[in-house]
């Protein structure tokens, strides 16, 4: 079964962005890659902006679903946070289109990572992470913990250090148990979640 046109178009866009970047990808490229007529593509996405917005939304939703799935089998908050961090990092690193943009045209993404629009980024990324924490934290701590985790991952991803390897579950667990977890839940609550 071939995917619905909308998904086919978004898949084609991913392929194009991974190949030539966000700036150089044109609607013609996408139509050709998807094997659809330009007019058909326009019926689904009337321009590059709505196309890219839809792509970002879909990829974000996929990541959110991956995170939820990755933590589903976890028994403790500690395990869930380690799974969250390693799964998020692995997904982002395996994302060819994202990696192309980060490497070749970072100026497209940077405004989302610092200052003004960074608050939007933080809010949206936290909202993506939060559902995966719901089973492990009191409801009033979930959004707050999600935001802190996004900050931590963003910092180590943007400014790596030899001490912490976000790809290594053992290294992540040390960071999480030593510094992150005690900041997410008051100490008297640690260990009582299951």
């Amino acid at each position: 079964m071939t995917p619905a046109p909308r998904d086919r178009i978004l898949d084609a866009t991913l392929t194009c962005v991974a190949r030539v970047g966000l700036g150089k990808t044109t609607l013609d490229d996408v139509a050709r890659e998807a094997g659809l007529a330009r007019a058909t593509l326009y019926r689904y996405f009337p321009g590059k902006q709505p196309l890219i917005s839809a792509l970002v939304a879909r990829e974000a939703a996929r990541l959110g679903a991956d995170l939820l799935e990755a933590t589903a089998a976890c028994r403790t908050l500690e395990d869930a946070v380690v799974e969250l961090v390693t799964t998020a990092v692995a997904s982002l690193e395996a994302h060819a289109a994202l990696q192309y943009v980060l490497l070749v045209e970072p100026e497209v993404l940077l405004p989302y990572l610092a200052f003004r629009r960074a608050d939007d980024f933080l809010r949206e990324a936290s909202a993506l992470v939060a559902p995966a924490l719901e089973a492990f934290l009191p409801s009033d701590r979930v959004a707050r913990a999600a935001e802190w985790l996004v900050r931590v991952v963003q910092s180590y991803a943007c400014s790596p250090t030899a001490e912490v390897d976000l790809n290594d579950p053992v290294s992540v667990r040390v960071l999480v148990t030593e510094f992150v977890l005690p900041g997410l839940v008051p100490s008297n609550m640690l260990g009582v979640t299951s």
């Binding site: 610092a114 608050d119 933080l122 935001e147 900050r151 910092s155």
Partner: peptide, 9 residues
């Protein structure tokens, strides 16, 4: 540095 850059919540 993160909190200086983005106040967040």
């Amino acid at each position: 540095l993160s909190l200086i850059g983005e106040a967040g919540r």
